[in-house]
Amino acid sequence: MVIEEMGERAIIVKFGDEISPDAHKMVIALDRFLAGLKTLFEWIPSYASVTIFYDPEVIGHEEIVRIIGQFRPEEIEEGEKETIEVPVMYGSKYGPDIEFVSDLNKMTVEEFIKFHSSFIYEVWMMGFMPGFAYLYGYTGSKVPRLERPRKYVMAGSVGIAGNQCGIYPFDSPGGWRIIGRTELKIFDIHKNPPSLFDLGKRVRFIPI
């Protein structure tokens, strides 16, 4: 665990320089540890680090470092991980890149749908845009991004890039290969929390 400064209002607690299940485990543990405290700061968990934002008038950086010093990952219980079922219309106009990704995996489209929906995915990071979850679990061939991002990807589109999956919460430009679409509302400002996904939540794609 390494602590780095990012300006006078943030620090980054790092667990290595790689995306890995071990780093993810540590991030989950620190996230739970911080959630269990009555903290005067906000934080963003990511793949291998947790960035903590603070107001130096409210809490000093030494105090945050002291709090992090009390973090004992082995004492944090893993806890239940909620699984969210995401119904997906694979292929056709909903997933224009499904043939490309199926070919890449040397599968027919039908085989690929079965393959892609066989995994249990887990949210390893949120970001890019509100409600966007980076999902890990896919073990097929790594999928290259589009050479030129699409100007318009519809909300609910399910994409793959590398070995990550994600669902676009809003209509937006996007460079991931799109294989299907869900009608689930990924981000809803009338709900609290507004995001369907959160760090550590699990996801199953259900072909419909």
Binding site: G7, P45, Y47, G127, F128
Partner: peptide, 27 residues
Amino acid sequence: VSEGMIAGAIQVPPDGLPIIMMADHPV
């Protein structure tokens, strides 16, 4: 490896020209 950012962070993409994160920056 992607990590949390704050306004004012100066990122450098491969073209070497800095980008400063402002109020609506991605997190």
